[in-house]
Simulated assay, not measured.
Amino acid sequence: MTKQRNIPISLPVTGEEEWQAIREPLMTGWLTSGPKVKEFESLFAERHKVKHAYAVTSATTALHLALVALDVGPGDEVIVPAFTWVSTANVVLYQGAKVVFVDIDPKTFNIDTKDLQKKISKNTKAIIPVHLFGLCAEMDAIKKVSGDIPLVEDGACAAGAEYKGMPAGGLGSIGCFSFHPRKSVTTGEGGMVTTNDDQLGEKLSMLRNHGASISEEQRHHGPKPYILPEFDIMGFNYRMTDLQGAVGVVQLKKLDQFIDARNEKALYYKEKLKEIDWIQLPECPQNSRHGWQSFVTLINEEKSPLKRNDLMEVLQAKGISTRPGTHAVHMLAYYKELLGHDAEDFAGAKLANDCSMAIPLHNRMVDEDFEYIIAALKNI
């Protein structure tokens, strides 16, 4: 009898290198945003082929800064996929704008461009395509129907992901990333906002630092200690610390190694699980490089011997952690009351909400973990 294993849904890969990396800021005393954050930003911009990258406190604050930089405000509409993490919608409300939900394609969990076309209006100020679970949205199709409307990439799950050979982060007007521990690379908490637009870049840099015209590092290392920054705009304190930046530098150098390993195991899952007709496996178009933040399946409850939730309980009892992919935001109590949508208004999002199931895929898993999970699913 196979011995029961304990396999978490996700675990970050951190160790001696990350431990040693934080020694320098701790010893120098430069703990706030400084040289390590600057190095992390430079490496991230180079890897993602963008002109500007600014480290912030989370993907949520990156998204918020993006909408502020685009002057989104009351009377504006921002289109958001109905199936995403709640912060994608919340940042629209922070700006007093209206959230307009669009359905998703359950095969990819990304924006349904046919529904998107129906939702664009004269008040649409921005669209937030989400590269959910690490798969880039179909950006060419989105651009075709959106015209000149700014696109804010929610790439929270998509560091290192690519669409037609171009990395996420430079596919729209602004890109936003997360370094939460469930992501491929982590700084604990943290995020990055990217752009190829010089004017937006300057604005984003100021906005994340109270609206200051110069950075803390420039101010403290400059020859004129009496100079304080000018504040021409109102900003926020969304700066990343150098402790996080130091960890980020180490983690980012492992990004492609991590993604390659996840891709290998994702292909292995797909090969071994393809005979189970009640599990829809995640797709990856040939024109994309999947970031594989998560391996999210869709359970066909008409064919499955168990409902999705019952299935998750059985797997949990076997030591296999699973999670719903994410949630349908229009079905959450706050948004249901605010906008009055019925669950069925976005059929793809509702299906994904009720039937998606992420199974473990991370870089601390060993071969025996994958074999154990595959066997458990086949034995349901």
Rank of each mutant, 00 (worst) to 15 (best):
I7M: 05
P8N: 09
L11D: 09
L11S: 12
V13N: 07
E18V: 10
W19N: 09
G34K: 04
G34L: 02
P35D: 02
K38D: 05
E41M: 03
S42V: 06
L43E: 11
F44C: 14
F44L: 13
A45D: 14
H48D: 10
Y54C: 05
V56T: 11
L65W: 04
A66Q: 04
A66P: 00
L67F: 03
V68P: 14
V72Y: 05
G73V: 07
G75H: 02
D76W: 04
D76I: 10
I79Q: 00
P81W: 01
P81F: 09
V86E: 11
A89W: 04
N90L: 08
L93Q: 09
G96D: 06
D105G: 11
P106N: 08
K107T: 12
T108L: 06
T108K: 05
N110V: 14
N110K: 01
T113Q: 10
T113Y: 14
L116F: 07
Q117F: 13
Q117W: 00
Q117G: 12
I120P: 00
T124M: 14
K125G: 08
I128D: 04
L135G: 13
D140N: 07
I142T: 04
K143E: 06
K143D: 08
V145Q: 11
S146E: 04
I149E: 11
E153N: 06
D154T: 02
A161L: 13
E162G: 01
Y163E: 06
L171P: 04
S173F: 02
S184I: 13
T195A: 13
T195R: 04
N196H: 06
L200V: 03
G201C: 03
E202M: 03
L204V: 10
S205F: 02
M206L: 10
A212S: 05
S215P: 00
E217Q: 08
H221G: 15
G222L: 10
P223A: 12
K224V: 12
P225E: 13
E230N: 04
G235W: 14
Y238H: 12
R239T: 12
G245L: 05
V247H: 01
V249S: 08
Q251L: 10
L252T: 02
Q257P: 00
F258G: 02
A261M: 14
R262C: 15
R262Y: 10
N263H: 06
L267K: 11
L267P: 00
Y268K: 03
L273N: 07
L273V: 12
I276Q: 03
D277S: 13
D277K: 08
Q280P: 02
P282D: 02
P282R: 03
C284Y: 06
N287Y: 15
S288A: 15
R289S: 08
R289Q: 07
F295Q: 01
V296P: 05
T297V: 15
K303F: 09
D310W: 00
L311T: 08
L311P: 07
M312T: 01
V314M: 15
I320Y: 03
A328P: 07
V329R: 02
K336C: 00
G340L: 09
F346G: 06
G348C: 07
A352V: 05
N353Q: 03
N353L: 11
M365P: 12
D369Q: 03
E371K: 14
I373D: 07
I373E: 13
A375G: 11
A376H: 05
L377D: 14
